[in-house]
């Protein structure tokens, strides 16, 4: 028989390294033709940080994304940005590149304020123009102001760095400020369980993630969807099998990860609860998506069968074994292993 069930998983997760400094630095230079060079140590391993960081810089300087040339993760030339881990790069390196861009535009701001005869705080940068926020019509072209700066022998370049506000944890009590900010998420899963074989089919996942501000919504969805597939694998099939310290399944033929056919429809819901200390309100989303998936799936199986499961991966055998126990048929026992 097939039984359906529905389950929720919720999580909160600290962004950045736990209770320790983990700064990131960046350099930004704005060239004569409004091309921007961004140097960041941040390694883009596919999550899209090169794009997101460039977007932050472009937004700060009021130029198009295509103008920002990113040089990243080259230890020969880029400043340290820390590891691409801990869901930290958008938040921490995002702040660093934004500050670097702010510093790079400082001379432009001063120059424009003088030319427009307004206070520096009232100056805005948008669409290659610099203007007083109260009167966008009297705007100066960005390139003209850059030229004015050059005439004075001023370069438009800056560096920036950011270190999240944390405090070391007390060794006794564990108290302190482990993270400057947190991501929150809830996922919902619908499953179908075959009560005679123990096979689970995940039919749908809905994943709602508070990311502060989605700098690049498509990339955020990509992180959510990918995290759900890792979470589904974690829930149902992924396991490093050890024997006397040796891994018995070191390859993709035995360590199974979800295929195209294992993945259900995923509906990503991006929640934007602005983080005051984040770049344009952003936090992180790298790891959070894979955290609540397994709980949601296991809760859905529990909901379908009325049995609570606490062990991962939840294989068909574990499910059938628990069903047999529930029906007083006895769980499966192992004899000699022939793996």
């Amino acid at each position: 028989m097939k039984k359906r069930g529905w389950g929720l998983g919720c999580m909160w997760y600290g962004i950045g390294n736990t209770g320790m400094p983990n700064p990131s630095g960046a350099f930004v230079e704005l060239l004569d033709d409004a091309t921007v060079i961004l140097l960041t140590g941040c390694a883009d391993i596919g999550q899209g940080s090169n794009t997101a960081l460039a977007q932050i810089v472009a937004e700060e300087l009021g130029v198009a994304l295509e103008m920002v040339k990113v040089v990243s993760a080259d230890t020969g030339v880029t400043p340290d940005a820390g590891a691409t881990s801990a869901s930290r790069q958008t938040y921490i390196s995002g702040n660093a590149v934004r500050k670097a861009a702010e510093t790079a535009k400082k001379p432009l701001k001063e120059k424009a304020a003088a030319l427009l005869k307004v206070a520096e705080e009232q100056i805005e940068f948008r669409d290659y123009k610099i203007f007083p926020s109260f009167d966008p019509k009297c705007a100066l072209p960005l390139k003209n102001v850059i030229r004015e700066c050059r005439r004075d022998g001023l370069l438009t370049l800056g560096h920036g760095s950011f270190n999240p506000d944390t405090a070391e944890l007390d060794k006794e009590s564990g108290r302190g400020i482990p993270y400057a900010t947190y991501a929150f998420a809830t996922q919902w899963a619908e499953v179908e369980v075959d009560t005679e074989t123990g096979e689970v089919t995940v039919l749908k996942i809905v994943a709602a993630h508070d990311v502060g501000k989605a700098i690049n919504p498509k990339a955020v969805e990509g992180q959510i969807e990918g995290g759900c597939s890792m979470g589904l694998g974690y829930a149902l099939m992924e396991e490093v099998i050890l024997e006397k310290g040796m891994i018995l399944n070191p390859g993709l033929s035995n360590y199974l990860i979800p295929t195209f056919k294992d993945m259900p429809e995923i509906i990503s819901l991006i929640v934007e609860e602005e983080e005051e200390t984040g770049p344009f309100g952003a936090k992180g989303v790298g790891e959070p998506p894979l955290i609540p998936t397994a709980p949601a799936i296991l809760n859905a199986v529990s909901n379908a069968l009325g049995i609570h499961f606490t062990e991962l991966p939840l294989t068909p055998e574990k499910i059938l074994s628990a069903l047999h126990e529930k029906n007083n048929k006895g769980a499966f026992q192992e004899g000699d292993l022939d793996a």
Binding site: G226, M230, L252, F260
Partner: peptide
């Protein structure tokens, strides 16, 4: 074709 990153959705 396995993909570890995208969850295949996109």
């Amino acid at each position: 074709n396995l993909c570890r990153c995208t969850g295949y959705v996109k």
